[in-house]
């Protein structure tokens, strides 16, 4: 193959390599700019990933909804329609296997299991990772646990922007302070 042809093909590959992360960024930025913000009450624990570093795993209080539809397989997609309660925290309006014609924001969650006793469908929200500076991830978990002991009810929540079924986890907040700053304040 001629050098110039190889070079042209390489440019195409290079564009693709640039396009994938760039597209991820544009997509997420547009959600943050024009999406609706919801607060999800949560509890963090800290694992890590070999390439992407430390993150805290978020266990959400909002993880189930009562439904009469009992045919669910693990890892099915479920459309979760959201609204805010009187305190401003997110709650489920409705769930469905297919998109519904509702004037509500929705996210697509992952089915965990169906509890036929209390007819609840348990699901995992698709934004359960919050990346943190490696020295802060463990402190964050401890801080949240301490805060839970000191104050009732749970005041830790994740700030999530939602638009057209996609979501971006923007921040985790303890007592109205971003968890990054909260950990520093503790030191």
């Amino acid at each position: 193959m001629k050098t110039i042809n190889i070079f042209i093909l390489f440019i195409v590959v290079a564009m693709a390599q640039l396009f994938v992360p760039a597209q991820m960024i544009f997509n997420k930025e547009s959600i943050i700019k024009s999406g609706v913000a919801y607060k999800f009450k949560t509890q963090p624990v800290d694992p890590s990933d070999p390439f992407r570093g430390k993150y805290i795993n978020l266990n959400y209080e909002l993880n189930a909804f009562v439904t009469n539809d009992s045919v669910w397989e693990r890892h099915d997609k479920v459309y979760v329609y959201l609204e805010s309660d009187s305190l401003g925290f997110a709650k489920v309006n409705d769930i469905s296997k297919r998109p519904l014609n509702l004037a509500k924001d929705h996210i697509i969650a992952d089915v965990n299991w169906y509890n036929s006793n209390d007819k609840k469908l348990n699901f995992n929200l698709p934004f359960n990772r919050y990346y943190m500076e490696e020295t802060k991830a463990y402190d964050a978990e401890v801080a949240v646990r301490q805060n839970e002991r000191d104050s009732l009810p749970n005041t830790t929540y994740a700030l999530v922007y939602v638009k057209d079924g996609e979501a971006v986890l923007n921040d985790v907040v303890i007592n109205e302070i971003s968890i990054k700053d909260y950990v520093e304040k503790d030191d």
């Binding site: 390489f10 590959v13 994938v20 991820m24 992407r52 570093g53 986890l169």
Partner: peptide
């Protein structure tokens, strides 16, 4: 790709991240 995932807290499991990575580098 890892850093973009960090910035925007994209959970995406490890295998799908590896798959995109491998496919983007295969032509090389």
């Amino acid at each position: 790709m890892a850093l973009v995932s960090q910035i925007y807290n994209i959970p995406g499991n490890f295998s799908s991240y590896l798959l995109t990575w491998i496919l983007l580098c295969l032509p090389l």
